[in-house]
Design a binder for these strands. Sequence first.
DNA 1: CTACTTTCTCCTCCTCCAGGACAAAGGTGG
DNA 2: CCACCTTTGTCCTGGAGGAGGAGAAAGTAG
Lengths: 396, 396
Amino acid sequence: MRRMTARPANAHQARLLRLLRDGGPNSRAQLGDQVELSRSKLAVEIDRLLQTGLVVADGLAASRGGRRSHNIRLAPSLRFLGVDIGATSIDVAVTNAELEVLGHLTQPMDVREGPVAVFEQALAMAAKLRASGVAEGFDGAGIGVPGPVRFPEGVPVAPPIMPGWDGFPVREALSQELGCPVMVDNDVNIMAQGEQHAGVARAVRDFLYVKIGTGIGCGILVGGEVYRGTNGSAGDIGHIQVEVDGRPCACGNRGCLEAYFGGSALARDAENAAREGRSAQLAARLEETGELEAKDVAVAATAGDAVALDLIREGGTRTGQVIAGLVSFFNPGLVVIGGGVTGLGHTLLAAIRTQVYRQSLPLATGNLPIVLGELGPTAGVIGAARLTSDHLFSPA
Amino acid sequence: MRRMTARPANAHQARLLRLLRDGGPNSRAQLGDQVELSRSKLAVEIDRLLQTGLVVADGLAASRGGRRSHNIRLAPSLRFLGVDIGATSIDVAVTNAELEVLGHLTQPMDVREGPVAVFEQALAMAAKLRASGVAEGFDGAGIGVPGPVRFPEGVPVAPPIMPGWDGFPVREALSQELGCPVMVDNDVNIMAQGEQHAGVARAVRDFLYVKIGTGIGCGILVGGEVYRGTNGSAGDIGHIQVEVDGRPCACGNRGCLEAYFGGSALARDAENAAREGRSAQLAARLEETGELEAKDVAVAATAGDAVALDLIREGGTRTGQVIAGLVSFFNPGLVVIGGGVTGLGHTLLAAIRTQVYRQSLPLATGNLPIVLGELGPTAGVIGAARLTSDHLFSPA
DNA sequence: CTACTTTCTCCTCCTCCAGGACAAAGGTGG
DNA sequence: CCACCTTTGTCCTGGAGGAGGAGAAAGTAG
């Protein structure tokens, strides 16, 4: 089960591996244009990488007017496991070394059942993927969990929505089970990295990824790197106050953003609206299922339900208020809105945009795109795979 | 006039120069303990630095049980100029290579008079310092201006409180006049760097420096480096909204933090209180001078005036509200309160602390000190000098 | 078939740098 | 005062890192 994947011996090799990961197979000559190394040194390092098996020579490329080049690519047998643990669902995917998703499973789950049960499920899903033939073993795994993480140790700290996880040695436990290196991070951070690797944030180095799921969180990228803060709790914007003496929040405070918006708040508000007879459509749905979810509001909104649209707009305005403040403070080059909000999509985005553009400094918003994430549920698993590949593709 | 100061030839030399700057004179052996270099390589690099004249051998140190060591120190003739341009005053100082202040001048000034007049004044102050004998010439200069700066070019962009400065080539113009390299940054950023170099933030890598002067701004340090954002406007927190449909602000919006607090707002509120007869003390002062300044409120507060104390507490609460949000978002290891608030000091600090500790996430505030800056008005000039020394002490 | 381009390999030479040997210069205890 | 220790600094050698020229290999264009 245990795979001994080689590691690059120096920074040059690490650099080359990342170039091959992000740019796909390439010739020695083309790689030489992207690094500041002489041809001879480059050849030496690539030979060494070939010897370790991390990269392979893979046929000849078409001529570009001269001798045809040998393609160099990352070993096609490399496999990364990406796991995204949300509050209510779990995503597991297998990627190749270029972080292309080869297989992806999603299942509902309740994070409050605790780490043991959740990881049992995650490992079962991984086994299922392996049985399907996309992987024989894993060279590395990345995990996102819905709470703050002490990143170097890979241990959740004081996670509000998953109390049973506090201090559970996620990294060590999973590394044992999987027999490969494991990296653990906040789920918002891995989604942000996913959008940076393969989504809308490809060319941007300083940006914010705002995830609106059950709760609301924010991934912060500074110079292309995740910023995690002193305790790993950076980006925890769900409990920023938006109303003095406002609604009570589950965290014990009052007036938090999450008391007004996010999957939980939205479902609760929709149920109230249904019970009070303000929306026939939501009431009908409530009748059917006994309770409402954020998804139901999205469906109702798409069908034109005025109450549902109002709820989304109001939530977007609240969220926009907070984002406006963060934009003034952080002056990002891009704001990505992601999370389980497909369907809420453009109504929500419009409300957020209106609020941010009205409220932030002109200099900060002048050239600021605010867009929806383009990867949807794969953002997390791609980001998780990237996290572990960043680790493996760095000098040992 | 022009000084051709040598630059380090490589990263090792740069590292050594910074060690000598931050740790003072030192022996080869002690330096060797702080860098990962062999003794021989270290000796070579130090010899080269000695040849350039950037460092000098400076006598023998006391024995520590064996052969006495030769002290190595930065050239004692090196001089940096630090300039801190505020909204209403200008600070100019001269430091040696260890960034110790050798001479410091402060004068009132109105930034709206435009860059030409202001720099004429700054250069006159620098000349006065030179005439006093603390410097013969300058090896580098750092300037802080009260507005966003496009850092690589050293040009202010769209500064709200100093419209005449937009696009003025500060770096180039001053470099011409002074005959040395010049670095330009936002004044809040240089103050933050000052506190990091020689003040309360010495050991902290991720922190926020909140300056409450005429307006309110924030310096952001990530991993020990200033974060400036995509347009150089990061940290502009004075126009974060604290009240929906609140007081009109000079920026055209409503409910901004600066509409409620900061030197301008405080002076205005104090004048209103005086006119409405709510504070005899402030009214008396208004009678004397015709208008009130933030300073007058500080004096009244120290004397126990209830209205003045209330104004400060209220402003601190508003500011604390904003900081609380930033703390949740950024999870800093330290928050420093600085700016022209000496006197408001502990009343203000208490109000800010109360609000932040009440309102931010426990994980983010658990071990978070919120303290006053300890350098006062020298923070800016030291930070400015450090900015330019960071530049000079990096490979050419 | 010739001329030219591109890609890749091989070889030489130079610099960087670690670490051992050793010299210099002090202290300590008899 | 001398033998022996510690600390500091210098010198030397060998090995690894790396740049760049020469040229072979393999293609295109005419």
